[in-house]
Amino acid sequence: MASLKDLRVRIGTVRNTRKITSAMKMVAGAKLRRAQEAAEAARPYAERMGRMLGSLAQSLKGQAGASPLMVGNGKDKVHLLVVATSDRGLCGSFNTALVRRARQLARRLAGEGKTVKFLIVGRKGRDQLRRDYGDAILETITDVGRRQVRFAEADAVAEKIAKLFREGAFDVCTLLYNRFKSAISIIPTEQQLIPFAAPASGEAGASPAAEGPRVSYEYEPDEGEILAALLPRNLSIQIFRALLESNASEHGARMTAMDNATRNASDMIGKLTLVYNRTRQAQITKELIEIISGAEAI
């Protein structure tokens, strides 16, 4: 049995741990609120962009010579998976769940005889995927959204993807990220970026049918040119949105994880204190018995 002193030390350690986890929980909570606000503030742009793209796509439908970003390059051989993970750990299953999803997808694609390549955002995703797919990782981008996700950062990621696409490094690009539903519920999500897949109706408010009769727009300079400018922009926006969602999810996941850790530490302190008190009493009783039996012997 552990001595009283050992027990005291252990209780002290667990108490310190609890202090740290509860502080981390508070910090994550505050950051979560900020991240959530940022995600909401970015929504109008994405919505309007979706609306414009929707009407453009409609007016260009069936025309030849559309941008490869829109219709793809006609091949389906090499897939690029963009995985948005976090730089830091201690956030529960945030990264593991997403990486598992990426692995599943990669296995499925490999089973279909396709080549899979990775572009990873965040240190943790790289660490987890490096062992199995070390050669397939084209690039890792870290330190995104350290304080807050900036549009310029998303733009840089999008630019990298667009460049790889132009160079013919891949045919289809899929983005994997954690969608934020609430602090306790995050959903690993896949989204096809290239070729451009119109968002499912109902999402991002891009339901053209709900806006009454279609208006036919004039275009200046012309459809093709606007589309050529709009599509890379849309890529950045989609990535920006995903990064914001992922950022909010990360803080949410960390908050929940740290909440659990704090609770576990409290339980542990309770149990240890019980053992400590029992041991103390047992010792007192033992000493009393020794004194009494000593006195009786005389």
Partner: peptide, 24 residues
């Protein structure tokens, strides 16, 4: 009139006229 940047909605107002610098 609405002015939106990727990061947030900058301006949303009822106005009489806006002059916008179009590409052409």
């Amino acid at each position: 009139f609405e002015l939106v940047s990727p990061e947030r909605l900058l301006l949303s107002a009822q106005v009489d006229m806006v002059v916008v610098p179009g590409a052409e």
